[in-house]
């Protein structure tokens, strides 16, 4: 399964996705992997569970929180996931 699926479906409802692993260069996938670790750290901190085990509402709430986070580094992650989710959904 596409490991970004829980994130992308929370951003773009009904995201079906494609076989991203083949298309994105390894560098992009590596950064996506690192960014998922950050997301899971926030999910554990706020909900005591990794992101993929959260309810759809909690996932969305966490992403909204991160998209308004005071740190530009965190906001940029959400912006990046949203861009990739939209590009790969359409």
């Amino acid at each position: 399964m596409e490991p970004m699926k829980p994130v992308f479906t929370a951003i773009v409802l009904g995201w079906k996705g494609r076989d991203l692993a083949k298309a994105w260069p390894w560098r992009v996938r590596f950064y996506l992997f690192l960014s998922r670790m950050v997301l899971n750290a926030y999910a554990l901190k706020r909900h005591a569970r990794p992101f993929s085990l959260l309810s759809p509402v909690a996932r969305e709430g966490l992403l909204v929180y991160l998209s308004r986070h005071p740190s530009p580094y965190v906001r940029r992650l959400v912006r990046w996931w949203k861009q990739l989710a939209l590009v790969s959904a359409c």
Partner: peptide, 20 residues
């Protein structure tokens, strides 16, 4: 969009600069 971004663009349109 998806095919264009992965086939026509460097890093599948996902390159970013470092910094805040």
């Amino acid at each position: 969009g998806y095919e264009a971004s992965t086939r026509l663009y460097r890093n599948g349109t996902s390159a970013m600069t470092w910094g805040r």
